[in-house]
């Protein structure tokens, strides 16, 4: 998961939307844990489009 720090507003919409509880927002730093299964819901939940799913090849 890639976070565009210039767009991110640290609002936590992704955190509460994550079915895996795999996102941690420590005030300003957004971290994804190993529980992330790349479902992509946070990408749509982000009000400003700050998240991008990049599939590893």
């Amino acid at each position: 998961m890639i976070v565009n720090v210039e767009k991110c507003m640290h609002c936590g919409a992704c955190v509460g939307s994550c079915p895996q509880n795999a996102i941690y927002l420590n005030d300003v730093v957004l971290e994804f844990t190993d529980d992330c299964n790349c479902c992509g819901r946070c990408v749509r939940a982000c009000p400003v489009g700050a998240l991008k799913l990049e599939v590893k090849k």
Partner: peptide, 26 residues
Amino acid sequence: DGFESQVARWAGIDTSLKAGDITTCF
């Protein structure tokens, strides 16, 4: 802890939401 609702999930209550039960706001 608000919408993020992480502490409850660590404690053992599943507060995760369906996509139809989440509103995204600006």
